[in-house]
Design a protein around this nucleic acid. Sequence first.
DNA 1: GGCGTCGACTAATATATATTAGCAAGCATA
DNA 2: TATGCTTGCTAATATATATTAGTCGACGCC
Lengths: 371, 371
Amino acid sequence: MSEPTELSDPPGTSRRRKPAAKPKGRVTMTDIARAAGCSQATVSFVLNNSPGIRLSQQTRDRVIEAARALGYSPPVFSALRPPVTPFEGLDGIIGFAVDQLATSPEAVVAIEGARQASWNAGNVLLVAQTMGDAVMEPRAISALTRRGISALIYMTIFTREIAAPDFLYSLDIPVILLNCYTADYAFPAVVPSEIAGGQSATRHLIAHGHRRIATITGEPWMQAAQDRLKGYRRALATADIPFDPELVVEGDWSASAGYAATVKLLGLEERPTAIFCQNDRTAIGCYEALKEAGLHIPQDISVVGYDDEEIARHLFPPLTTSILPHLAMGQWAIEQLETPPTPGRGRYPITKLECPLVERESVGNVPAQLR
Amino acid sequence: MSEPTELSDPPGTSRRRKPAAKPKGRVTMTDIARAAGCSQATVSFVLNNSPGIRLSQQTRDRVIEAARALGYSPPVFSALRPPVTPFEGLDGIIGFAVDQLATSPEAVVAIEGARQASWNAGNVLLVAQTMGDAVMEPRAISALTRRGISALIYMTIFTREIAAPDFLYSLDIPVILLNCYTADYAFPAVVPSEIAGGQSATRHLIAHGHRRIATITGEPWMQAAQDRLKGYRRALATADIPFDPELVVEGDWSASAGYAATVKLLGLEERPTAIFCQNDRTAIGCYEALKEAGLHIPQDISVVGYDDEEIARHLFPPLTTSILPHLAMGQWAIEQLETPPTPGRGRYPITKLECPLVERESVGNVPAQLR
DNA sequence: GGCGTCGACTAATATATATTAGCAAGCATA
DNA sequence: TATGCTTGCTAATATATATTAGTCGACGCC
């Protein structure tokens, strides 16, 4: 085989072949054999781990090393990637890449939504973490794609615009962005509608007669914080309540910042009758400061949070807060896959999903004496 | 192939071949071609999505359908699976199967531990959910194994003995059990040392002078609840404090059960000076009941929790609790992979990892008047 | 020192897959 | 009605991989 029909010298032929060459792109077992100094058959045995074949560990190692060095990889059969459409009883595999799994519960919630939505289709969700790391991310995603996935959902923990890594563009499967979006609208994308969320939280307070509504923000460079504040202002404007900068205190999403901010608000000449904490942790600190000040929630003052973290329902009184729609976002992402099989690369609008308010017991009407 | 060296009739041979047969296990493109009513070449074109080849969509569909129906799949060169040992600069893939991701944070924590441990080795972790479902589980795991994982970590949410699914035994990669174990000790397994955890939580209270220590259990059928209680009893016994059944109240891990149980304990003739809540949620309810009763923590009464949930540090006062070692368990699982390359199938002892106590501010010395 | 026989491997070959060349049907010109 | 071009496919064949049937040398053993 190696000597092209030149069968004049049987053994020790390896000396020839110097002439560069291997112009054909693919790496074959014969190449590996040459590199490892053994026969193609041996390579086949090693790579397949053929049972009943006895080979020295050395040879095995050499073959494997050579195979790796040459980048040998089995064929993929891209057409066999199962579809993601429901009806078929096939087990598709959907990749879910997220920068971090551990820092906040939202990623898991979105995964849960995606899982639920793909459940009846029998699709398996495979999750990889990119850690937002330039080295790990391609690896993680190629671990997903290498053996064929039907679609990729790409999520970030913080809502933001991203510069999608190049390889996302060259995948030949549908890609859905979750909680992030690209400037070029190249992929379907879904994010929470934080502006509307901030607005309806505030409106809820207004509906209870509050006019003097404070808000404690998150870290101001984060889009979520900006949008929630924007919603707050819109709600005030809609109700013809003048915006009072004194009532906006900058926090950083933490309970201690919530505490400090609340203390500050209570020190105001005319204190607010309601506080919109832009996340639940902030509300924890806020609660504590209010209780210390001897105020009762919601009789004396109302509080709303945001995010509907687990803890919100364990607070006393249970906190009215806005649900981050990550469950729905996960479902939405899967649904996108079901409808059109991705026609070319279009421009997709960014979908925003509502953050519904869960009413619990931390909001009441304005106390009579303050009305 | 099937016609043994009978080369007398070149074309149109397909008419023969009827004789049932396809005894060879493997499915070939020729099989697919026959099923789809086309040539092997066409199958190759379709499956490889060869560029520049024009084929009707119908034919493509038929081929793909046939390929699926026959279960065609590309070879996996098992020997090429990258090792899990650090040094090598190769990106291995480690599979992590867990029954559920969303129900509790522990799964994510264990994953995080595994990720950290495999980080410097450049290994990618791929997570799949089995949902404890007999149909989904094999699919999920085969989705992992099919892409050539180097090892599998199999985790359950609740600590328990499992009957490992058969296919776990026939995998040719290392399998590590996390938070579960099999009766036959066939795999390395790691679980939290709940007995020791319950013991040291109780001992901590004893060390602060408490003698009358109550405990609120979890759901009694769960192993964790049994073990934590066992640890409580051991600590008492060690300190020569008689066990008083009155001081053990059955809960169900929930805050409301914690509340009710605490109310009951406070109604006791001689009330406890400390309460060991067997999880943090129970402690939330406990806190509330104590506060309502006008008791201050830790001046009047001490409380410890278990699990170190996020919320524990936001309680007022921050709750002393035991850390579930899931992070360490995840790391441990990865470390097991690094040491011996799994010699045969041995019998592995179950490893138990400590649940260290985090001291915060909910434990104080016994109030003078009660001492 | 002749004789098994066992470990480690390869030559040759059987099978599977990829690719090239080109056929045939349809249909739009001309 | 011939001409040419496209679409859709296959026969034949080139390449790649899997498997069978050994070869070869190093023991071990009367």
